[in-house]
Design a protein around this nucleic acid. Structure first.
Lengths: 337, 337
DNA sequence: CTATGATGTGGTAGCGCTACCATCTTGCAT
DNA sequence: ATGCAAGATGGTAGCGCTACCACATCATAG
């Protein structure tokens, strides 16, 4: 039998069924991985599917599943690399469990907007919603979600209530690990640049760093405020470098500030890592593109989003913290004295 | 009549019709802005819709439109801020013309992957596809699209063939404008950092800059290679600053390289903008977060994506270049001599 | 006061898929 | 052999929406 292997669209499940000599139902079973199909039948159908390049219509699929199978992704801050990663992870996760992903713009800091975004999602039939930062620490969004009775998975923020699932790395532990790494290399005076105080991760990271410092005799942590921006990192870096006991390493609470601190080191006529090691947190695009590359902590953002989608779909478990990874690049070395 | 204004889902068009005392068809017309509905009827229906918070089921809508109404967005490089903006623009555009946006991961540089991504989109029923960079200059993707008979709008790249619509800013003109700005401030020796040579915008920008230089007696453009990364900008910046005729301004072909050049200025013990002005191109997140903020050229990325979606939906015109905008920040000033 | 259209509105039939139950095969014990 | 469960498959009926055409309704013209 000759099968047109072209781009002709509009192939339906019925077409595949006819070609394979089975009923549409059987094709549906094969496509959905239902166990109760004889091996021979399955193989046959799969072959036809491959030959024809058939892809089931997602819309019809969702519709037939009668309203079930929809999850939402809220987003704020469109021009943010983090979001792009969340999105691709969520998309993949949703696809893998056969869910439709509704993507809904919100607006962090505008309570009314936030509420409406959640309502649109709810009205759109989402059973669950993925909440990336900074929405996950916004009361307006969280309230609206709890009223809507949707399930929710918040990313990179603690679960503010019982019925929320939180997917985040162990910020305390990661900061501890990073600080210990610096201490192990021999650094004793370490500058620390704080993040925004309205995000709980900021304090977690400071606590982790402090804990590591406390374990080592004679080690000190010089803490400077910051707000996660490059500029605040630059200024905090300048202040740190101007101190009488100049730190030999600077740990910034995110990569943007680390990049700023790096610039401050250069501006002070010093060199990284020779004079001052600099480390960040997040492993964003910036960390790898800056020179020298930043030693930092990678959060598996896309993987977290994928898992969030799967949890919402399959009703998974709210297991423990997500594993992070320390990425070593060129911005760290033992102190030169 | 009391209407439950709660979160109860599952309201269908039929429910609204019953409440409003009309037929489902009429509700559909109101929802879709069909002109042929009496004003009184429309108002009534709209009120019920508002009271109930009814939102039509997107899946059913798409399905009923019988395969029509789908466009695709290809994407590569998930962790890219540019993409997030394209996405939000495309989403909005698609929504505004009632289209379903299929989002499909591709992989720049892997021809087989690229081909498959396009095919999935085509198989998924997309009639058109939005192609953001760098896919828009990839032969594999472009070939696959032309075979698939989908319409396509490429973003930030020239139309490689007749049936492609291209949405891009006038790179030549923008670079000319930026260079003229520097010349007008009094700069005469200007460093220029090239972009990757496999993207046509790179050469366009150089040509624009050169053209502006050629108009001014005694002005020179010192061109250094680069590849759009921070690091290449840093190194090109160093080379430029080491030259006998040190430039008083550096024009980098994108913001990443401009940020690198900025670091090189600092590293050389100089200051921006006092000793050396630095400008970029693109107005990415980086441009605003670096300090001093970069004077740069903004491309309306989200707006372009929105327009792309609308063109694919409504079959719009492939009008001229997209308007860009020069953003003045703190990284530029007249030369200090 | 009836033709003649314009203008609203309703009815019907799917879009492509899956849930559910009915039906037909099998394999195996008796 | 025969009976019977378990396994494999098919038929039917929608999911919620919109295209398409038929039918009211109304104004205007003859």
């Amino acid at each position: 039998m000759t099968v047109k292997t072209g781009q002709g669209r509009n192939r339906t499940m019925g077409d595949i069924a006819r070609l394979a000599g089975v009923s549409p139902m059987t094709v549906s079973r094969v496509v959905n991985g239902d166990a109760r199909v004889r091996e021979a039948t399955r193989t046959k159908v799969e072959q036809i599917i491959r030959e024809t390049g058939y892809v089931p219509d997602p819309a019809a699929r969702i519709l037939a599943r009668a309203g079930a199978g929809r999850i939402g992704l809220l987003y704020a801050n469109p021009s943010n690399a983090y979001l792009a990663e969340v999105l691709s992870g969520a998309l993949e996760g949703a696809r893998s469990v056969g869910l439709l992903l509704l993507i809904e713009p919100s607006q962090a800091g505008a309570p009314e907007e936030e509420r409406e975004a959640v309502q649109r999602l709810s009205a759109g039939g989402a059973q669950g919603v993925i909440v990336p930062p900074p929405l996950g620490e916004s009361q307006a969004t969280l309230d609206a979600i709890s009223k809507s009775r949707m399930k929710a998975v918040v990313l990179a923020a603690p679960a503010a209530s019982e019925d929320l699932v939180s997917l985040k790395v162990d910020d305390v532990g990661a900061a501890h690990q990073m600080t210990k790494h610096l201490l192990d290399m021999g650094h004793r005076v370490i500058g620390f640049i704080l993040g925004r105080q309205d995000q709980s991760a900021s304090d977690d990271r400071r606590r982790g760093a402090q804990a590591a410092i406390d374990d080592v005799e004679g080690a000190v942590l010089q803490v400077e405020p910051g707000d996660f921006t490059y500029r605040s990192g630059f200024e905090a870096g300048r202040r740190l470098l101007a101190q009488s006991r100049r730190p030999t390493a600077i740990f910034a609470s995110n990569d943007d500030m680390a990049a700023g601190a790096l610039a401050a080191v250069h501006a002070a006529g010093l060199s990284t890592p020779r004079d001052v090691s600099v480390v960040g947190f997040d492993d964003t695009y910036l960390a790898a593109s800056v020179w020298p590359g930043l030693t930092t902590i990678r959060q598996p953002v896309a993987a977290m989003a994928r898992r969030a989608a799967i949890i919402l779909g399959r009703g998974g478990e709210n297991s423990g913290p997500v594993a992070h990874e320390m990425i070593l690049r060129e911005s760290t070395s033992p102190p030169s004295d």
